[in-house]
Write a protein that binds this DNA or RNA. Structure first.
Lengths: 146, 146
DNA sequence: GCTTGCCTTAGAGTGTACTCTAAGGTTTAA
DNA sequence: TTAAACCTTAGAGTACACTCTAAGGCAAGC
């Protein structure tokens, strides 16, 4: 089975523009051309593209993905180098998860205030504190009474 | 206690450039000026800035953060609107967490292959499959023997 | 044979979020 | 009083990842 660029776009959610952009950027050196010069994706190409999307969606820069793909194209002998790259990337992803969880906790804390039955009162207290803070420092106060 | 832009930069990890950029973008309407026209941050301002960073770090666009700050500046009466905004944002953050966890799983799967004692053999099998895929589709094969 | 709907390329344009430069004012300390 | 180290602004420049336009080739159906 061969897939046209439009079919791959539909399958992956990437636009055809983006796929061509990735090709130009050196991310798709494995994609062959048919007799008319059209890109012809195979199932195996889709697996590699899936890996590319996985790396992209976890925040890897295109230049780094290209480096990874270059290792793939260089053959099985680069397995250990790929492991090193992925291991490093894994750590940035875990760090991202940790940061995201902490920030979510912060959002939930705020939400607990805003969703409380007496939210307006609680928020008015924050407001008063910020206002007092301005006055204590003899600064103009944007939290004027309402 | 008042903080200069440089002190706030050191405290938050944002650059002074970024803080000025945020101010220009309407994210810091609460920051007052001292007699010389210098920005003077209070403790209360740092709390608000922390919220801004929390929203930014979870992927909220600056235009949306400005909208949230506008609600804050409009007073306690906007508590419910803020709750709605944060609730919606919360869902995008949870979705992000889910996607990240799935992608991490994918990375771990790859790593298991690359880190195996016989990694080169396993990778050679992938390689052979991709190569066969090209041949079965009568396409030029970038996975030539090595 | 002509229209429609694909595909190709090079290269220009867009959006977002910074990041920096230039010109100049303020504060502190020698 | 002058140098160093801050601060200010407007606006230009950068980095990144797309996103689109223009000009044109290929393939199928009427």
């Amino acid at each position: 089975m061969r897939y046209s660029i439009k079919q791959v776009a539909a399958k992956t959610g990437l636009s055809a523009y983006t796929l061509r952009f990735y090709d130009k950027a050196g991310l798709l050196p494995f994609v062959a051309r048919d007799a008319s010069g059209y890109r012809a994706f195979t199932e195996g190409d889709l697996l590699l593209l899936k890996t590319i999307c996985c790396l992209k969606d976890t925040g890897m820069a295109i230049a780094d993905i290209r480096q990874y793909i270059n290792l793939v194209m260089a053959g099985p002998k680069t397995a250990k180098q790929r492991a090193t790259m992925l291991q490093q990337h894994r750590e940035t992803v875990v760090a991202k998860q940790k940061a995201l969880a902490e920030n979510l906790h912060e959002i939930d804390y705020k939400l607990a205030i805003y969703a409380a039955p007496d939210a307006e009162n609680l928020v008015a207290q924050e407001w008063a504190a910020a206002s007092a803070d301005k006055q204590a420092n003899a600064l103009s106060n944007p939290f004027h009474a309402r």
